[in-house]
Design a protein around this nucleic acid. Structure first.
Lengths: 113, 113
DNA sequence: TAAAAATATAATAATATTAGAATATATGTA
DNA sequence: TACATATATTCTAATATTATTATATTTTTA
């Protein structure tokens, strides 16, 4: 199982608008850097930086085709994670029924709120 | 559906060791602040700060019981997300079969790597 | 009503993340 | 071999996040 540290790392890496867009594109298939330049409105060096970060974390990889670098997804958690993030959840979780027990709770009076 | 911005916000909020521990505890049930003090090795004000952040994002809420604040989970995506993060994925995603098409790709030579 | 317990808020200093600018590298082509 | 194309790397300034410290608020209890 991923350690706590690894889970945090993964979340931090994904939690950026450019990087999540990159990953969403890659779930559809291989893309080279200049493909990304078409729809990400940031500079080429910046795109490369984000791609490197994703690669250093083992989330994506690439193969070389001439002077192109073709990136693709490697980490299988990514599609699942992206899917859940897009899913609609209508109901909030049910609140605690009544007087649930916290360690210090004694509930001497009425519960408020 | 959650907007891109909302998805990023959510990920950023969760991507912190203390906050993810708080959320994992809350999937088990209600906890008050001093319950958290027992197993998080950080100061009380710091715990409060993290709880406030989670609350401001609508991820948790609390009710008041005397001088206790009893926190509980509200956002239904959280248990699903935490579960996926812990799940074991053995295999990497299958790499691109052969010569997948990127916009600029012409594959004149051999594919390397 | 004064003291204590439980928790929150505010200000700040330390640290991490980010984008931008300049430059470098590698490969294909004229 | 010189040039153009595709992409990466390095350094830096701006910004955001974090933990710490001190203090405030609210509620119960003596």
């Amino acid at each position: 199982m991923r350690s706590l540290g690894q889970r945090i790392e993964l979340l931090k890496v994904i939690a950026h608008p450019v990087r999540i867009k990159i990953l969403e594109e890659l779930t559809k298939g291989v893309k080279c850097v200049s493909d990304f330049e078409e729809f990400l409105e940031i500079s080429q060096p910046n795109i490369s930086q984000h791609l490197s970060l994703l690669r250093n974390h083992g989330i994506i990889d690439f193969y070389i085709d001439g002077r192109l670098r073709c990136y693709f997804l490697v980490d299988p958690i990514i599609p699942d994670l992206l899917e859940i993030l897009k899913k609609d959840y209508h109901e909030a979780l049910p609140g605690p029924e009544c007087c649930p027990v916290t360690k210090k709770g004694k509930y001497p009076g009425d519960r408020r709120r």
